[in-house]
């Protein structure tokens, strides 16, 4: 019985195990047909191999890709060690910022630079602040203390100046009473007919 192509191919690839290999060699010693077929398969294989991409064809691409990777990947990675970026989630940043603002506001509102407690500045009005959340309450201890509204502006100013504070009072947005004479001055800039209408 002659050998089939699959056995010959496997033999050709050097992948045939014993005892089949020995049997194939024995068979090939006398069978002309199988030898011819083996030759054909060998030639086919050589034809396939001959069309392989050659080292000559590969070389320029090999160099090009290597220099690309070295420049863009390997060298960059070395730099990255020193330029690591840290990622923090946005809600985390917002929460931290909000907490910071609350604490800072409390501290700035209810402390003086010299560290005197607020109670000395405005008695019975401010409550000792513990930090973050601050609520101004004037209703505490009502029987003993007057509410802030019960003081006149003059009294408050007097008290503050007696404690050594210099207070400046400014009035926003004054709308002066417009006098007739003022109107005439403005009107005089207008065309001559108008004053006559007013009269």
């Amino acid at each position: 019985m002659c050998l089939d192509d699959q056995i010959l191919n496997t033999y050709l690839d050097g992948e045939l195990g014993e005892p089949w290999k020995t049997q194939v060699i024995e068979h090939l010693n006398y069978c002309v047909a199988c030898n011819t077929r083996l030759e054909q398969l060998k030639r086919l294989r050589e034809t396939l191999l001959s069309s392989a991409l050659t080292q000559q064809e590969i070389q320029p691409h090999q160099e090009k890709v290597l220099s690309f990777i070295e420049k863009n990947i390997i060298e960059k990675k070395h730099i990255n060690i020193f330029r690591k970026t840290f990622r923090v989630s946005m809600p985390m940043v917002m929460a931290t910022a909000a907490a910071f603002v609350v604490i800072l506001t409390g501290v700035l509102l209810f402390t003086r630079p010299d560290g005197l407690p607020t109670g000395q500045i405005i008695p019975n009005v401010a409550i000792p602040s513990a930090g973050s959340v601050v609520q101004v309450r004037a209703t505490e201890n009502l029987s003993a203390a007057k509410l802030l509204e019960n003081f006149t502006l003059e009294e408050i100013l007097q008290y503050l100046s007696s404690r050594g504070y210099e207070v400046e009072v400014k009035v926003k947005e004054i709308q002066p009473v417009v006098h007739q004479t003022d109107q005439n001055e403005i009107g005089s800039e207008k065309p001559a007919e108008e004053p006559t209408v007013e009269q």
């Binding site: 192509d5 699959q6 191919n9 496997t10 690839d13 992948e15 054909q40 398969l41 086919l44 294989r45 034809t47 396939l48």
Partner: peptide
């Protein structure tokens, strides 16, 4: 693998 190598060569042979 063995079977596929064989089949591939067979097809290659007939195409060539």
């Amino acid at each position: 693998v063995k079977v596929r190598v064989h089949r591939a060569r067979k097809i290659m042979e007939s195409m060539l």
